[in-house]
Each structure stands twice: as structure tokens, then as C-alpha cells.
């Protein structure tokens, strides 16, 4: 059957209808608004072509935001993936109590992002936060982590890394468990040590899955908004301003929907770039 039958079309219709009305249509609006000088404050709604895009791309703020986004993405993808990989490999070898370990180690997933923000804002706060208590105990002195431009972004990124670790862990673990057993059994016959098994058999076999998990995590962090917004609102100054936060700020703090939409579309372009990498990678994996 090369053609879609009527019955099949009917089955697809509900999902498609929701997506068209509440997704495709708003996307159209965003593109349209991004071409307007649409500010609730200046009370304008005139067509200005690509002026909003130029304004964003030429501003110092864009450079700042792009750099911040890069830092945010690197910390909150690499850190959880490395930790998750170690945890998944350990679990794969089924040490005593590995079930309990899985349950405890995955516990952060039961928190919603707002709770995560609260948990970590509490950890970083002064004088009640544990991070400062620990720093003091080790003689490092206290800091105002979320109000210090040098530490605000890394601090929020670490919170995000914490929140993302269990997801990466569960996916990598599932990936490991789906690998064929023959090569490992064969290596056991050859008397390979655990480390050798990991280095020469498991890691190479896991690599395709690892890259897909990595790319998915990448997309999720590039477009994530809640944690930064709740913890620092992009501040202090612009020290933790990332693409989505800048987008939200333009629309809902400066009431400039034209500029906000242009930021939004730039977001889309970045994410789509990474998405193509995923699709391409997935083809390769298959």
C-alpha cells in the first residue's frame, strides 16, 4: 500500500488536527510577528522585514547569550553523561545491591523542574545553604553563588546536570542491556578483565547509542528554560542569559513581541541544526 487510505487518514486526523491548530498555526504567527515592529509599549505593528533579526544578531547581547548558551550546554550535557556512563557501566556488572543503587541514583527524576530549582537555590543560598557550609568547613570561604557573575551560570548548569543525570543513566543502562552478549562471553573465555571488557567491547558497541543520547540531551538543554528562569532570571546582569531566557525576556519583560519572535526563530534555527545531526546520526545507526 503506497497510498494512505481514507481509514488511515481518519486515524491520523485527531493528532494532526491538534498539532496544526495549536502548533503549526502559532509557528506561523511567530514567523509573522518576527517580521513586525510589534511592541506593546511603542504601540507599533508595522512590517519591518528582517530588521528584528538584524537587531538581535548585531547586538552585544547576542554574543553574550550565545557564549552563555554554549557554557550552559557543555556543562549540563558532558557532566551528566560522564557520570551516567560510569554509573551505567557499574550497574551493568550487577554488583551486590545494584537494584537499590538504581532506585536511589535515579531519585532526582521524581522532582519537577520547579522543585529542582528550589532544592538548588536552597543549596546555594547564604547563610542557609549547604554549599557554603561545606566550603566553610573546608576553609574555602563563603560565596553568593547565584549573584556572582563568575559562578551563577556554572551553578545553575550543575543543578541542571544533576537533574539530567538519571535520564542519561537509564537510557545508557537500557542501551548496555540491549547489546548482544556473545562478544562479552567470548572475551570472558579469553580471560579479559572487567576494565578490558569495558574498554574494548562495551564502549565501542555502546558508542552509537551514546551519541544519540548525547544529541538528545543537547537539544533538551539548548531549549530548556525553567531552571535558569526560576533560579536567576538570566542574571546577575546578563551573566546567565541563554537563548530561551533572552527570548522570554524580550517578549515578557520588554513587551516587544517582534523582537521576542525573532529571538524565538533564531532558537528554532539552532535547535533544528542539531536536530538534523540527530536524524543523520540515526540513519547511520540503523
Amino acid at each position: 500500500m503506497r497510498r494512505l487510505t481514507l481509514d488511515q487518514a481518519v486515524l491520523i486526523a485527531p493528532a494532526l488536527a491538534i498539532m496544526l491548530v495549536f502548533f503549526a498555526y502559532p509557528i506561523g504567527l511567530t514567523v509573522y510577528f518576527s517580521l513586525l515592529d510589534y511592541s506593546l509599549m511603542r504601540r507599533t505593528k508595522a512590517f519591518v522585514g528582517l530588521a528584528n533579526y538584524l537587531h538581535v544578531l548585531q547586538s552585544d547581547l547576542f554574543v553574550r547569550t550565545a557564549t552563555n548558551t554554549l557554557v550552559w550546554v557543555v556543562i549540563s550535557t558532558v557532566l551528566p553523561l560522564l557520570i551516567a556512563l560510569v554509573a551505567a557501566l557499574l550497574t551493568y556488572f550487577r554488583f551486590r545491591g545494584y537494584r537499590a543503587f538504581t532506585a536511589l541514583f535515579s531519585l532526582p527524576i521524581v522532582f519537577i523542574p520547579s522543585s529542582t530549582a528550589i532544592l538548588w537555590a536552597l543549596m546555594y543560598s547564604d547563610p542557609f545553604g549547604l554549599v557554603n557550609h561545606l566550603c566553610e568547613a573546608f576553609g574555602l570561604g563563603r560565596r553568593i553563588w547565584l549573584a556572582d557573575p563568575a559562578t551563577a551560570l556554572p551553578a545553575v548548569s550543575i543543578a541542571n546536570a544533576w537533574y539530567g543525570t538519571p535520564f542519561a543513566y537509564l537510557m545508557l543502562l537500557a542501551g548496555l542491556e540491549s547489546l548482544p552478549l556473545e562478544p562479552i562471553e567470548a572475551s570472558e573465555v579469553d580471560g579479559a578483565s572487567s576494565l578490558q571488557k569495558v574498554r574494548y567491547i562495551l564502549l565501542p558497541m555502546l558508542w552509537p547509542i551514546f551519541t544519540v543520547v548525547f544529541l538528545l540531551r543537547l537539544i533538551d538543554t539548548v531549549r530548556s528554560f525553567a531552571l535558569i528562569w526560576i533560579m536567576t532570571q538570566g542574571g546577575p546582569g546578563t551573566a546567565s542569559l541563554t537563548l530561551p531566557v533572552a527570548t522570554f525576556k524580550a517578549s515578557f519583560l520588554q513587551y516587544d513581541y517582534g523582537l521576542g519572535s525573532a529571538w524565538g526563530i533564531i532558537n528554532v534555527i539552532v535547535v533544528m541544526g542539531i536536530s538534523f545531526a540527530i536524524v543523520w546520526r540515526r540513519r547511520e545507526v540503523e
Binding site: D148, T238, L253
Partner: peptide, 23 residues
Amino acid sequence: LKEGPEIVTAFIEEAQALTVASV
């Protein structure tokens, strides 16, 4: 001023930067 919010946003960002001694 109708540009108020934009200016306030800029002012807040700069004032925060001053407070944390990054400028």
C-alpha cells in the same frame, strides 16, 4: 516613556553588574 520597560531592563542589568563588581 513608552520605551520605559526596555530602559528599565537595561538599567536593572547594569545595576546588577555593578552590584556584583563585574563592571
